[in-house]
């Protein structure tokens, strides 16, 4: 197997709001291999964004904490880093692009002023060197007129161009891992196609690893090597992309795929998962998906299923119990803490 660049083990994040405590992530484990694209799929509130914030050390200090587990980046535990150590890492070894290209650039600085920040900080470049570097990076992400663009302000650019600027910002220090949180959700289809195309091209040119967070299975199919499916703060399925699309194992993943309009006959009733995602406070014991699952068993309501793995295809569902052996014994203990 190839080398792991990032490994997350049993991560739990806790949010506090006064006396109330919420765990938006409850025991998440997965890893990213060097050079691969890992997709993280899930609906809003499943914890995919919180996971990425935890990796970047961007969780709000006062109201949240990592309750347990660790995040290993090149065997260094990120959950124990100080702010200062994190600053060295962010934008340098790990970088991130966000969903909203409109708000993630500061409107009062020119493109060049914003892009030179990481170069000056991490690479100690001179002004003219940094400028040259930035221009070549802007060209690399397919922006026209890079020499003029560098002195323009964000409001002069369109959404697609801004997202390209964000990508070039993320790439400037040649990071080993890039986290893209819904990078195309706010963009139009034709622009989305451009950006995905660009990300593919950039991936092919370097050995950077990409963690792609999205709710769009189409984007996953197009971009990823491996996929992690999250639901209500847990990883419910993890597999190679082809395996996942050929034979999804978890009822949630199955439901998600079947409910896509393109997988249903025109004008027919779409397959749909009944009910809605439970709120963090509503999850008690048992499988978090039990209340919506079409195959729910008595066991599902009582016991939290552990992760079953078969040929690198992980699924957290009791249905897998009979034929596959249990791998993660610790998981059941986790319920007691809750």
């Amino acid at each position: 197997m190839s080398e792991k660049i990032l490994e997350i083990n049993d991560l739990r994040v806790q949010f506090k709001n006064g006396k109330e405590k919420v765990q938006p992530i409850r025991g998440v484990s997965f890893h990213i291999n060097k050079g691969e694209t890992l997709g993280i799929v899930g609906e809003s509130g499943c914890g995919k964004s919180v996971t990425s914030l935890a990796i970047m050390g961007l969780l709000p200090d006062k109201t949240s904490e990592i309750a347990s587990g660790n995040i290993l980046f090149n065997n260094q535990d990120l959950s124990k880093l100080t702010d200062k150590q994190f600053r060295k890492l962010r934008g340098n070894d790990i970088s991130m692009i966000f969903q909203e290209p409109m708000t993630s650039l500061n409107p009062v600085f020119t493109i060049g002023e914003q892009l030179k920040e990481p170069l000056r900080r991490h690479k100690n470049m001179s002004k003219s060197q940094a400028r040259k570097e930035i221009i070549s990076m802007l060209q690399q992400v397919g922006l026209p007129r890079a020499e003029q663009l560098i002195d323009e302000y964000p409001h002069q650019l369109s959404g697609g161009m801004r997202q390209r600027v964000m990508i070039s910002l993320a790439l400037l220090c040649k990071p080993q891992l890039m986290i893209a949180d819904e990078p195309t959700t706010a963009l139009d289809v034709t622009i989305q196609a451009q950006i995905l195309d660009l990300l593919k091209k950039l991936k092919a040119e370097s050995d950077m690893s990409l963690m792609l967070i999205t709710h769009d299975l189409g984007v996953v199919a197009e971009m990823c090597n491996r996929v992690v499916v999250m639901y209500a703060g847990e990883v419910v399925e993890e597999a190679e992309v082809n395996d996942l699309f050929d034979s999804p194992k978890h009822p949630y993943t199955k439901g998600l795929m079947q409910s896509l309009p393109s997988n249903n006959d025109r004008k027919s009733k779409l397959f749909s998962i009944k009910g809605q995602v439970p709120r963090p406070s509503e999850i008690t014991g048992g499988c978090a998906f039990a209340n919506r699952c079409p195959h729910v068993l008595e066991r599902c309501v009582k016991e939290t299923p552990p992760s079953f793995t078969h040929q690198n295809h992980l699924s957290k569902c009791w249905l897998q119990d009979t034929s596959y052996k249990e791998v993660n014994h610790d998981e059941t203990k986790g319920t007691a803490i809750r």
């Binding site: 034709t190 189409g218 984007v219 199919a221 990823c224 699309f245």
Partner: peptide, 12 residues
């Protein structure tokens, strides 16, 4: 172009 930009539904 619009139709061709729709993401695929299966990786294959």
């Amino acid at each position: 172009a619009l139709l061709s930009a729709v993401p695929i539904t299966h990786p294959k």
